[in-house]
Write a protein that binds this DNA or RNA. Structure first.
Lengths: 250, 250
DNA sequence: CGATGTCTTGACGCTTCTCAACGATCGTGG
DNA sequence: CCACGATCGTTGAGAAGCGTCAAGACATCG
């Protein structure tokens, strides 16, 4: 494998900003320091499935680059988008309960993922208590993310859901650093709608409305943030207070 | 503590049907076989909090009897019910990510919970690999439950959400055994509404409608299941097919 | 017995879903 | 190179569902 060397430098660059780097380092599995890293990395062209519903789930996956969605098909054939997964985030926890995936994971763009075999994680966790704690922390974080989804869905007004969706995306892409002023959405309006529980037309109208109000500038999937504080306000407070004349709760 | 003996027999009865019994046995912590069990059990009168948002979370909790709800207060003062927790189910995973609870857990009825200190769980997990796997399984299951909540919220029609809510409650109360024909809801219409993302009046109307259609008989919080197959159908297929003349998908 | 909390039911208005047409972009093939 | 179709996004009009406001029934508790 003479091509390992370029891969390693590539991976080192890719791991540096990864939110799960410490996790991977401690797990000792797919970090560049180890020679057999390349085996753990999987390339996923746009549209391809990482796993399907019903598949046996022996690994967790870390998104290294690109973006994925997890979808569940309901009995009546409707598609539910359960989550979007950005670089540095975990995919595949839905198989922890019974060893089988309950959803399908599909690449929204050309992506790379690291596979973390659960068995090896557990073995390492038995040897190193810190990894066990880190594992809990990471899994708990993913659970928290699911709760974030619930919070979005509980929002009544479509505009609030969309603002919260955008804000959440920005914060996750920033991963602690400064928020981006511009981003390219890896998913379609329909997929956003299936994630937010809205019709795709409503999503489109919501974006247009945010643009009319001068909060963002939108051209298809390209979104520019014009008024970040306002977006933050729309996302976290509840909607219809257009004026800064709100002052509830003592 | 001379009153330990009656407690132990009580606990043994309570643990027998518990879905987490194997988990607790392997963890070796709050199972009747140990003498100091009583310390791990906490009585919670109706309306009392098990923990509040912001509290440090050092334990997971197993519901032994009664019922809890976990709620989050949003920035605008609205109450979101994140989940209901029935006997044999886990509460408190929301603190795994950062060690602090993101929500408040409140007893809907007089309840008993077992505390499982995370530190001790991890220590035991380090010694016994099976426990580590079991821990992952249980946590994964709770994550799956959150996804179930998402599935409910994605349902457009109020009637579908309510049917799915009832069916889910029945299945969880049954815990693998035969479904009950009658149940007493531990939560109010308003709490159901805050869980389903509906107004309390809509919840009330939904129950009335199910009664008009002969699916259930409802008197306040007392619910009798008259047509279980129909309820199952309403919950899993999408709503408006009143006739059994549906046959989609090849 | 009155007060309070909970549940039910009605009427009305608004948000959003549905159906529909149109424009833009991109990849394909002539 | 351009025409063509397909996919995606936008926008409009109408209808249906749900939230809101309001009133009343019922049970519990002081």
């Amino acid at each position: 494998m003479g091509s390992d060397l370029p891969d390693l430098t590539l991976l080192r660059r890719a791991c540096a900003p990864c939110g799960l780097r410490n996790f991977c380092q401690q797990s000792g599995l797919p970090f560049p320091a180890e020679a057999r890293v390349a085996e753990q990395v999987r390339r996923l062209p746009r549209g391809e499935s990482l796993f399907r519903a019903g598949d046996a789930g022996k690994s967790l996956f870390v998104v290294r680059s690109g973006a994925l969605k997890t979808v569940a098909i309901t009995a009546d054939g409707a598609e539910h988008v359960l989550g979007f997964h950005l670089p540095g985030e975990l995919v595949g926890l839905d198989s922890l309960a019974d060893g089988r995936h309950g959803a399908e994971a599909i690449a929204l763009a050309d992506s790379q993922v690291c596979a973390l075999p659960v068995d090896q994680l557990l073995d390492r966790g038995t040897q190193a208590p810190e990894l066990g704690r880190e594992l809990l922390r990471v899994i708990g974080g993913s659970s928290t993310q699911c709760l974030g989804h619930v919070e979005v869905l509980m929002r009544r007004q479509a505009g609030e859901r969309i603002a919260l969706f955008l804000q959440d995306l920005l914060e996750r892409l920033a991963a602690g650093r400064e928020l981006l002023r511009e981003l390219h959405l890896p998913m379609s309006r329909e997929e956003i709608g299936h994630y937010l529980g809205l019709a795709l037309e409503t999503v489109s109208r919501g974006f247009s409305r945010l643009q009319d109000e001068g909060v963002i500038r939108v051209a298809g999937r390209q979104v520019e943030i014009l008024d970040a504080p306002r977006l933050r306000q729309l996302a976290h407070s509840s909607g219809p207070d257009t004026d800064p004349s709100l002052k509830r709760r003592a």
